[in-house]
Simulated scan of single mutants.
Amino acid sequence: MITSKQRSYLRSLANTMEPIFQIGKGGLEDTFFRQLDEALEAREILKIKVLNNSGYEAREASDIICSELGCEGIQAIGNKLVIYRKSEKKPKIELP
């Protein structure tokens, strides 16, 4: 479980990031989850854009992704969400 101070730190890291994934009309599929899992292992923190035609709200998509991949939902504002999971092999982000 992440504390509010750690969550704030992760939000500040994600502030300058560009979304590298989009959730579109294809929705949340197994291949999408596999790609997210690999990207989380490599980067630890991801910003995802939820398109209007996806049928999901950012918070809803964040909850589904986090329950599927075992990650933490850091932020869901507007149509963007940020998720975090500590890398098992090579941790890069040092939480306060």
Rank of each mutant, 00 (worst) to 15 (best):
S62Y: 00
F32Y: 09
K90G: 00
L40A: 14
A76C: 15
E88M: 05
D37I: 02
S62L: 06
M17S: 08
I45L: 11
L36G: 00
G26E: 09
T3A: 15
L95D: 01
L40K: 02
G24V: 02
A39D: 12
I77D: 06
L40T: 01
L51R: 11
I65P: 00
D30S: 15
I2A: 08
Y56A: 05
M17G: 06
R59L: 15
R43S: 15
D63M: 07
G55F: 05
E60Q: 14
Q6R: 05
R11A: 13
L13W: 09
G73M: 09
G70I: 10
I77Q: 07
D30H: 04
A61K: 06
Q22S: 09
R7G: 04
S8V: 01
L10N: 09
I23K: 04
F33K: 08
I48P: 03
E72V: 15
G27Y: 08
I45S: 04
E60K: 14
L81G: 03
L36C: 02
K89E: 15
I83G: 04
S4K: 14
G55E: 02
K47M: 08
P96W: 08
E94H: 10
E60I: 03
C66Y: 10
S8D: 11
L51F: 13
A76M: 07
E29A: 05
S54G: 06
K92L: 11
C71F: 02
K92H: 05
K89R: 12
P96I: 07
Y56G: 03
Y84L: 06
V82D: 05
A58L: 10
V50F: 04
K49V: 03
F33P: 02
M1G: 11
I23M: 05
G24N: 11
G55K: 03
G55Y: 04
G27P: 05
M1D: 13
Q75G: 04
I45V: 10
V50A: 03
A39M: 06
L13P: 13
I45E: 00
